[in-house]
Design a binder for these strands. Structure first.
Length: 312
DNA sequence: TGCAGTGTTGCTTC
DNA sequence: CGAAGCAACACTGC
């Protein structure tokens, strides 16, 4: 689900609702033995320390770096959250049900959104709440994650960017300094790779995943399997232009909910209504005057969707 | 019914 | 080093 526009939408919501609040409690039912998650809340031996460190701290700021969400706390530490495939951060009032050992959402109105009316309360993701932060205004920040790939960990704010989670990341494509030349330099790190795969490589540049890479290449008229070293300067310019346009459009529409992305109020984004390629297999190409058909092909383990005619 | 497919990424293997 | 395959997990849809 979450690529740059979705993570940005969630982070913006956190800035509005939880920055300035204190964390009064934290709960989880995650219990993994996966060594890769040794330093996360999912490790029962690590969780008590995590809890002790964050209790009674204030959330000072919310930041996005690549597809990570960073909550900077008043104790010089930061909570790093990665939503991976099915993670959601949901803000609202939750009630703990002891005999079921789970949290359920309570009917509520936030920002004039009636949760019950909008259907957000009955959305299936509420069945998968695995971490709950209790906040000083009586509300909660819930982490729902069906597939349990997500990651929540605590780091020293000062060492955040040197940590293994962030140190190998490429530049942010929506930064002012990310000009066409920047993209060219980034891409030159992987001259033999297929362009779709390279665009999704977070050590090359960040934030682009499977949906947005398909959409960017559709508009740039480039086949997803085109080898990076064979791209002309004009083609790289086109990719750069459309990357910024499409990612900004994704943010403007509140993210992409083709699958199950929800903002912090539990409501879907609208970018899925503007797909030209992603999951349009077999349908007519929507480019003006193009009579192509959208094809699907697995490229390096991911589904790529592209027009068989105008993407070369 | 069973199995392919799902937004991500990190480890292993070659 | 880089590329590729697969695993982590749980559910949906054909």
């Amino acid at each position: 689900m979450p690529e740059l526009p979705e993570v940005e939408t969630t982070t913006k919501g956190l800035r509005v609702e939880v920055v300035g609040l204190k964390i009064l409690d934290v709960w989880t039912d995650l219990k993994t033995k996966d060594k890769r998650k040794a330093d996360t809340v999912a490790n029962p031996r690590h969780f008590p320390l995590f809890k002790k460190e964050i209790l009674n701290t204030k959330i000072l700021q919310a930041e996005r770096r690549a597809k990570n969400i960073l909550l900077h706390l008043s104790n010089k530490k930061s909570i790093l959250i990665h939503l991976k495939m099915t993670g959601h951060l949901l803000y609202g009032t939750y009630v703990f049900v002891p005999n079921e050992n789970k949290w359920i959402p309570k009917s509520q109105n936030i920002k004039n959104i009636n949760y019950e009316k909008e259907g957000a309360l009955s959305d299936p993701f509420n069945r998968f709440v695995h971490v709950v932060f209790s906040l000083s205004n009586g509300k909660h920040l819930a982490f729902s994650d069906m597939r349990k790939f997500g990651k929540i960990t605590l780091l020293e704010t000062e060492k955040l960017y040197q940590s293994k989670h962030l140190k190998n990341l490429g530049p942010e494509p929506l930064e002012k300094s990310f000009i066409s030349k920047t993209l060219k330099v980034c891409l030159s790190k992987r001259p033999t790779g297929k362009i779709k795969t390279v665009l999704m490589d977070q050590s090359v540049l960040v934030g682009v995943g499977n949906i947005y890479s398909d959409e960017i290449l559709f508009h740039a008229n480039i086949h997803p399997e085109k080898i990076v070293s064979k791209l002309s300067d004009t083609e790289i310019k086109n990719i750069h232009t459309w990357m910024q346009k499409i990612l900004k459009k994704g943010i403007d529409f509140g993210g992409d909910s083709m699958s199950d992305y929800r903002n912090i109020y539990g409501l879907p984004g609208k970018f899925q209504m503007h797909h030209k390629a992603y999951r349009r297999t077999g349908q007519k190409c929507l480019l003006k005057n193009c009579s192509g058909i959208i094809h699907r092909k697995v490229i390096n383990g991911r589904s790529a969707h592209f027009c068989n005619l105008h993407q070369k």
